[in-house]
Design a protein around this nucleic acid. Sequence first.
DNA 1: TTTTTGGTTTGACCAAAATCAATGACGACC
DNA 2: GGTCGTCATTGATTTTGGTCAAACCAAAAA
Lengths: 241, 241
Amino acid sequence: MDSLEIDTPMNFCQACAVRNRAICADLDDEEIGLLNAIGRRKRLRAGEQLLWEGDEAIIVANVVEGVLKLSTQTADGKEQILGMVYPSDFLGRPFGETTPYGVEALSDAQVCVFRRADFDRFAREHPRLEHKLLERTLAELDRARRWMVLLGRMNAEQKLATYLVETAERLLPANCDETKLGDERTLTLPLSRQQMADVLGLTIETVSRHISKLKKEGLIDLPGRRELTINSLKALAERGG
Amino acid sequence: MDSLEIDTPMNFCQACAVRNRAICADLDDEEIGLLNAIGRRKRLRAGEQLLWEGDEAIIVANVVEGVLKLSTQTADGKEQILGMVYPSDFLGRPFGETTPYGVEALSDAQVCVFRRADFDRFAREHPRLEHKLLERTLAELDRARRWMVLLGRMNAEQKLATYLVETAERLLPANCDETKLGDERTLTLPLSRQQMADVLGLTIETVSRHISKLKKEGLIDLPGRRELTINSLKALAERGG
DNA sequence: TTTTTGGTTTGACCAAAATCAATGACGACC
DNA sequence: GGTCGTCATTGATTTTGGTCAAACCAAAAA
C-alpha cells in the first residue's frame, strides 16, 4: 500500500482545527497556499500504522485530530513507547534518512502528510516555519530527557503516579482540583495497561498491581477499565517523587 | 560568581578547532564576525560546573575542547546523566526560560559562551545558523530516544555492554577489529564507575559486578581502573541485545 | 616510606519487579 | 442470553538489581 495514499486533498488550511497551534501558525496566506499544495490530509483508523520503524523517512506530518504513539521494538521483542503525539504536534524525521520509530494511531485520527523531500525544501525556504519546528523540537527534547529520569531512576509506583498525574493534567478539564466531584475528576485513559507498561518500561502485571494498590489506598477510583477518577491529585503527585 | 566571567576574548573563530563542525560552520566571514562579538571563550577545569539545573537559561555554549555531562537530580538525591557533549557540540536551552539540566565539565574544557538573549536574537536573524541548530537538535532527540529504550527495556548486562560498545566506537581508533592487538584495542574510559551508573540508571555496585563478569568471561580486560581492552567487540555487541 | 583518601570490588542479604500460571471481567458477535 | 476472544487482575515463585557493609587498591599527601 502506498503510504502517500490520498484520502482528502488538504484544501482548507484556513479551516484547519490546529491552524493556530501547529508549526504552520506563523505563515502568511501565500505561504499557507504553497504548503497546502504539497500536503495531503489523511485519515487513520485506531490501530492503523502511519510509519514503520527503519523505513526510509519518506513522510512527515502534522496531527490534526486524535492520538498517535511513537514506538520502537527491542531485539527480544519488547516494545518501548517513545512518545505520544496529540493534535497540533508534528511527527516524523525531517532532514534524516530513516524514521527512527514506528507511528501508530491509538484513536481514529487525521493528519496532514507531506513528502519529506517537499517538506524539507519548503522548510529551508521559510525560516519562520523552521523556527517553529526548532522550538517544538527543543521542547520535545526536554520532554524526552525528563522521561529518561523517569525510566532510569524511578520505581514502579513513582512511574505510574507520575504518568497518571501527567495524563490527568492533559485530559482533565482545566483547574480541576480535589474540591470537584464526580465526572469532573474522571477521565478516559488513552492507553491500555499494556501500553502504559510500554511507556513506563514495566510489565503489564506490575502496572496492574500498582494501579490496584493506588485504588486500595483511595487515591484513585476505577469506574471502568479505561476510566480513571482522581481523588487527590496532590497525594498522587507526591507518590511521583 | 558571574557565570559570564571572561577568560579569553573569542577573537579568532577563524582559528577555532571546531570551526568547521560546530553550528557556526555555514556562516560567512561577516556573520562569524558578528557572532564573535557576542561570544566569549571560557576555560573550565575538570569538575567545574557551567550551568545549574533550574537556573534561568542565561547562557548557551559551543564546546571547543573537552567533555561535559548534562545531568539532573531526582527528589531523593539520585542522579541521572542525560547526555554527554563533546567538541563541536552545542549545549544549553535556546528559546527557553530555564535550563532543564546541570552542565559540568568532566575533563578540562573550553567552550564558547553566549548570553542566551544575544544568541537567540542572532539565531533568528540568521536562518543558516538556525538550520544547523535544528539538525543538531533533531539528531540529539533521536539519540535521547534510543537511550530511552536502553533505560526502559534493557537489563544491567545489556545496558553495560551497549555502553561499552558505544564508547569503544567513539574512542577506539577507526576500523579497529578483533584482529588488532594490545594498545589498539585499549581505551581510557571517560567516566568513573559511579558516572557510568548514572548514565545507565544503575548503581555503582551493579556496574562493577557486571564489568567483572564480562572480564571473567574474557570479553574485556581491565589493565587499570580507567583502562578497558575490548577482546571481542562483536561478542560484546551481542550482549547488548 | 607510611598514611590517607577516594574510588572500586566483593559478599551477604533483601526488596522490587519479572515471570509463570490461573482466573476474572467485559464487549463483540452469534 | 450464551460464547468467544481480548484484556486485566491476582497469586505464587523466581530473578534481578539494590542496599548495607567490609575489604581492597592505587595514587597523592605527609
